[in-house]
Simulated scan of single mutants.
Amino acid sequence: MCISSWKQPDSSPTHTLCRHSEIIAIQVEDLNFVVDGSSSVYITRSKTDPTGSVKYLSHLTVQHLQHRLDWVQIAP
């Protein structure tokens, strides 16, 4: 599932400092939720980093993502 609905300027992508093209390429499998709340997303490649990188997510972003995934009934 592509997380392309993150296009709104007030939503989670602004917390990752990712480009639009990086955001629309994120798949559910790229999300890493950890029990202690320190979650991350793997950006497969970007304009400035063709090998990929990991971006860490804030607790607020994680709550938003979990709520959205629950809403569409997708388990990470």
Results as ranks from 00 to 15, higher is better:
Ser40Asp: 13
Tyr42Lys: 06
Glu29Lys: 02
Arg45Leu: 04
Val41Met: 11
Gly52Pro: 12
His64Met: 01
Gln63Asn: 02
Gly37Gln: 07
Thr14Asn: 09
Val35Asn: 10
Phe33Ser: 12
Leu31Gly: 09
Thr51Met: 09
Leu60Glu: 14
Val62Cys: 04
Ser5Leu: 03
Pro13Glu: 04
Ser53Ala: 02
Asn32Gly: 12
Lys47Asp: 13
Asp70Ile: 02
Ser46Leu: 05
Pro50Asp: 11
Arg19His: 04
Ala25Asp: 15
Ser21Ala: 14
Pro50Val: 08
Ser4Ala: 10
Val34Arg: 08
Val28Asn: 13
Tyr42Phe: 07
Leu69Cys: 05
Trp71Cys: 05
Tyr56His: 05
Met1Thr: 13
Val34Glu: 05
Ile74Ser: 02
Gly52Glu: 09
His67Ile: 04
Thr14Gln: 00
Val62Pro: 00
Leu69Ile: 08
Ser21Leu: 12
Pro9Ala: 08
Val34Ala: 11
Ser40Val: 15
Leu69Trp: 05
Asp30Ile: 00
Thr51Tyr: 08
Asp30Val: 00
Cys18His: 11
Gln66Thr: 06
Pro9Met: 13
Arg45Tyr: 11
His20Glu: 15
Ser21Trp: 00
Tyr42Ala: 12
Gly37Leu: 15
Val34Phe: 14
Leu65Met: 10
Gln27Lys: 03
Pro9Trp: 02
His15Glu: 04
Thr14Ser: 06
Ser46Arg: 13
Lys7Leu: 02
Ser5Asn: 08
Ile74Trp: 06
Tyr56Cys: 14
Trp71His: 09
Thr44Ser: 06
His67Thr: 14
Leu17Val: 08
Leu65Glu: 04
Ile26Gly: 00
His20Gly: 15
Ser4His: 06
Ala75Ser: 09
Asn32His: 10
Asp30Gln: 03
Thr16Val: 14
Ser4Leu: 14
Arg19Thr: 14
His15Thr: 10
Ser46Cys: 15
Cys2Trp: 05
His20Asn: 08
Val41Gln: 07
Ile3Asn: 03
Pro9Ile: 07
Ile26His: 12
Gln8Tyr: 03
Arg45Pro: 02
Ile3Arg: 00
Val62Gly: 07
Trp6Asn: 01
Pro76Gln: 04
Asp10Phe: 00
Val35Pro: 10
Gln73Asn: 03
Ile74Gly: 00
Trp6Gln: 08
Gln27Glu: 14
Ser39Ala: 12
Thr44Gly: 11
Phe33Ile: 15
Ala75His: 08
Lys55Trp: 07
Thr16His: 01
Lys47Thr: 14
Ser11Cys: 01
Ser4Cys: 07
Lys55Asn: 01
Leu57Glu: 02
Asp36Gly: 11
Phe33Thr: 12
Pro50Gly: 07
Tyr56Leu: 05
Gln73Val: 14
Ile23Glu: 00
Thr51Lys: 13
Trp71Ile: 10
Val35Met: 03
Ser40His: 03
Ser21Phe: 04
